[in-house]
Design a protein around this nucleic acid. Sequence first.
DNA 1: CGTTTCCGTAAGTCATAGCTTACCGTAAGC
DNA 2: GCTTACGGTAAGCTATGACTTACGGAAACG
Lengths: 106, 106
Amino acid sequence: MTYGNALHALADPTRRLVMESLRSGPRAVGDIARGMPVSRPAVSQHLKVLKEAGLVTDRAEGTRRVYYIDPNGLAALRAWLDQFWDKALGAFQAETEKSFEKEKPE
Amino acid sequence: MTYGNALHALADPTRRLVMESLRSGPRAVGDIARGMPVSRPAVSQHLKVLKEAGLVTDRAEGTRRVYYIDPNGLAALRAWLDQFWDKALGAFQAETEKSFEKEKPE
DNA sequence: CGTTTCCGTAAGTCATAGCTTACCGTAAGC
DNA sequence: GCTTACGGTAAGCTATGACTTACGGAAACG
């Protein structure tokens, strides 16, 4: 149920901002917080959630912590979405066919 | 920013249960609520959120409302995820290469 | 070593989200 | 037409989550 954590983590707009800022590459916490609408501790808390969801990882670099995107969480989310998509699409197509028959009653 | 709504909607476990129950095909509200851990009004509220996120649609059928999955929301989410995946993966690979060079200092 | 930088955590506040019960409109059934 | 099934909405409660300030610890720097 790791995709559940990923969905929960990505549901927050600020956390998505953090992810976006990491999309271009690894960054330190203070660097991420700079230019964010919230305080640095808030960013730390968000990073913790993202890390637990498997969306980011961190690495110590002297006195600073460098965070970067972890593909695992994204992969889990994508796998769930794809699997969902396949089954749901079939059901939806059957539905549109039904309303299609209404307009072409033959 | 419709993927934001989709993420927010799918972040809730009960709402995911609703989506799962619609995966096999269209169902009426009462039918969905039957076998859910929450009350029927709660399901109605969840359906409203899902509908606003473009994840479900409904159709009147006599006195009952039949809900079924709307591919639009899922498609938006998937598009965002794919686009994110591509850019982030490159950054991550550059990162792993960096730690790889550490182990092979030549 | 003292100091400074960087960051995580604790404590507390405030808004929001999810749930319930109660109520109302609407379409079918007799 | 009255009643019954169905489902959306209102009102209210409670828990959780996102933020803040304040504090503490660890690594570099002089």
